[in-house]
Amino acid sequence: MFDHDIVAFIQSGVSITLAACAPGRVPSMSRGYACKPVDGDTIGIILPQTQAAEALDNIRLTGRVAVAFSQPTTNRTTQIKGTDARIVAFDPDDEHLVRKHIEEFVPEAVALGTPEEMVRALLSYQREDLVMVLFTPTSGFDQTPGPKAGHPLPATP
């Protein structure tokens, strides 16, 4: 697993984007609404089924995912990939993670001039529409524009 700094970063008010690919290499994507590290080796991404329907179909077919985490105010960006992704039901006890994510993401976006109303509309959801994608990271990269772009993420010693 990645070092503590990365694990804290992907759970902060970053934008989350999950991508998957169909067997014919056609990619699909959806915004994620929260990130939940599970049992030390697995990451959970909470996202809305209606928006992510195509990506979820692809995950069922291939199990491969890539998830980008980016902090709007700093451009710090990280991408984590896995090959064993699976879809599990959303645990209503995890809703506080979604609420926390939104509350931390809103000031990030507002700081760049986006109206709060717009950001909240973008991340609005219905609890029954949420699902979680679980996967074991097999690789991770720093994707912040600059000299370190493409470097592997530091792992826990």
Partner: peptide, 16 residues
Amino acid sequence: IPGHIVTCDPGGMPNV
């Protein structure tokens, strides 16, 4: 609002 581009490598691994 920054846009995203997603692609897929020849081995079938997606990228954002």
